[in-house]
Amino acid sequence: MVEFLSFRDGEASQEPSVTVESFTGQSNSTAVRIEAGEDARELLPYLDRLSLVEVNFPAYTDGRGYSAARILREAGYAGELRAVGDVLVDQIVPMRRCGFDSFHPDKPLDDAAVERALHRYADVYQKTVDGRRPVWAKRHPEIVNG
């Protein structure tokens, strides 16, 4: 079983994260935790000094964190983006696609199930922030670069 999963090179951030409110109020922290319903865009002025953003999933069915993650990546955030809370094996792939690169679930995940999930789908239909080439780009390689 795996308690922490990272797709980043190097060590994961150990810094304890603070709330969005205290982060935007004080200036020395580099780790912040977004609760469901908080606006990820409040962090956009501070992306350069952030090294860790945790996004909490109070229940796996609460999908607000997917939008929060993608917004941060679309705005150019390059630090660690960690999904925490009710994160299940079936959510790892869509979360990766929205820009999460580390995971600290409430309940440990089965390594083999994670491996299977990660390699299940060779192709994806949408362009997101994970750099995967969508099917439409593969169909038209002469038009769509990268």
Partner: peptide, 14 residues
């Protein structure tokens, strides 16, 4: 249909 299939951001909508 293709765009919406397994759309990662919109799989756990309200």
């Amino acid at each position: 249909r293709q765009w919406s299939t397994f759309h990662p951001e919109f799989t756990y909508l309200p």
